[in-house]
Computed example of a mutant assay.
Amino acid sequence: MGDRILGAICLVMAVAMAWAAHGYAAEISYEPVGPRAFPTLLATILGLVGAWLLLKRQAHAVASGTPVLAATSPLDWKAVAMCAAAVMVYGALFRTLGFWLATTLMAVPVGMAFGGTLKKSLIGGLVMGLGFYVLFDKLLDVILPTGVMSFLLGGR
C-alpha cells in the first residue's frame, strides 16, 4: 500500500512540476535549451517512477496469483523522514557548501535510508556529486554554485 501511495504522490508532484515549468521562459535567449527543459525532464522522470510504483506491485501480484493487498509492504516512515530531512538540509546549504559537496552530503543519509552502508553511501554520494557537477557545470554549461570549494573548482 505504501508503494502505491508514494507512486500517487510522485505522479501528482510530476504533474505540478510540469505545469509550473510550462510557464518558464527566458527574457533573453542565452541558452539553447532554455529554463523549462530541466524541470520538465525531472517531472517526466518523476512521473515514470510514480507510475512504475503504482503498477509494479499489482503486476507482480497478478502474475504470481497473490491477492494485491497481500503483496504490499508497509512504508518505512523513518526512511521517508530521513530522506525529507536530508533534502531540506540540502536546500538550506546548497549555496554555502556548493553543489557537489551539498549533493555528496545529502546522498549519504538518503543512501543509508535505502539500506546502504556508510562507506557505500559516501562513495556513491561523492561520485554522484562530482559527476553531476561535471555534467551540468562543465558539459552542459549550467552554472552551479561551488560554495566553500570555489578555490578548487574555479568558483562562481
Rank of each mutant, 00 (worst) to 15 (best):
R36D: 15
V49P: 08
A37W: 02
L42I: 10
P39V: 02
A37P: 05
P32F: 06
R57S: 15
V49R: 02
G34M: 01
G47Y: 10
L41V: 13
T40V: 04
R57Y: 02
K56L: 03
S29P: 08
A37Q: 10
R36P: 14
P39K: 00
R57T: 14
Y24P: 01
L54V: 13
A26I: 02
L48T: 06
F38Y: 09
I28T: 14
L46D: 09
A26N: 05
I45F: 12
G50M: 11
T40G: 15
V49I: 14
P39H: 01
R57A: 15
V49Y: 11
P35W: 00
R36C: 10
L42W: 09
I45E: 11
Y30V: 09
G34E: 00
A25T: 02
A43W: 01
L41W: 06
L42Y: 03
V33H: 06
V33Q: 12
G50Q: 01
F38E: 08
F38P: 09
V33I: 12
Q58P: 12
W52L: 12
I45Y: 03
A37F: 07
R57D: 15
R57I: 10
G47C: 06
P32K: 04
T44K: 02
T40C: 11
W52Y: 13
L55Y: 07
F38Q: 10
A51P: 07
A37C: 09
P32C: 01
A43P: 08
R57E: 15
T44C: 13
R36I: 04
E31T: 13
L55M: 12
A37H: 04
Y24H: 11
P32L: 05
A37K: 02
I45W: 07
L42F: 07
W52S: 13
E27M: 05
P39C: 02
R57F: 02
A25Y: 00
L53G: 14
L54A: 12
S29K: 09
P39Y: 00
K56S: 15
S29R: 08
L48G: 09
L54H: 03
G34T: 01
V33E: 08
Q58H: 07
W52D: 08
E31K: 06
A43Q: 03
I45S: 03
L41H: 08
I45V: 15
K56W: 07
P39R: 05
L46S: 05
L53S: 11
F38M: 14
S29F: 03
T40Y: 03
P39N: 04
A25I: 00
I28Y: 04
E31F: 02
A37I: 03
F38L: 15
Y30T: 13
P35Q: 04
L54K: 02
G47S: 04
E27V: 00
K56I: 03
F38V: 13
G50A: 10
W52N: 05
A26E: 12
R36G: 15
Y30S: 09
A25V: 00
S29D: 07
Y30M: 08
A25C: 05
L42C: 12
P32G: 11
V49M: 14
T40P: 08
A51Y: 01
I45R: 00
L42N: 04
A25R: 00
L53P: 13
G50W: 00
W52I: 06
G47M: 10
Y24L: 15
V33S: 06
A51M: 05
L41P: 12
P39W: 00
K56G: 13
T44E: 01
R57C: 14
G34C: 09
Y30L: 08
R36N: 15
K56P: 07
V49Q: 06
I45L: 14
V49W: 05
W52G: 14
P32S: 14
K56R: 10
